[in-house]
Amino acid sequence: MIDRIEYQKYVSDNQPKSPMVRTLIAAFIVGGIICCIGEGIGDILKLIFKDMSEKDVATWESCIMIFLGSFFTALGLYDKLGHYAGGGSIIPITGFANSVTSPAMEYNREGVFFGICAKMFVIAGPIIVFGVTASFIVGFIGYFVV
């Protein structure tokens, strides 16, 4: 039988690889379009509510994008976009919404408590933990330095 190291080299040299150029271009275009939609929503909000502060506009914009991400996940369309765009649809906030909504949909058969609620953050959990920890550290430093 073949040597272990030689076999691993054979596999890594010969296994089919992702088409780099196509996936990068697809991710760039789709990610860009999602961000443009977000910016567009922000601009429309500014037009409708003229005296809304910049900060409130950004918050509402995020809320609407999260809603859209979850909505298209529920319709079963966001995963199809993800197969095509990869990182382009994972990185924006809609991708985060997708990573929370999809396990919630998947595990609703195990009931509300141990299904949806327990499993909702299976994928998004690490992001939330790191986000909270990072903001705590930055806030701590900011409090004493500034």
Binding site: Y78, S99, S102
Partner: peptide, 17 residues
């Protein structure tokens, strides 16, 4: 998929292998 990988609706990419 649910047992070994990710939820069905998660928008990730399957590798070519």
């Amino acid at each position: 998929e649910r047992q070994y990988r990710f939820p069905l609706e998660l928008g990730n990419q399957r590798p070519p292998t």
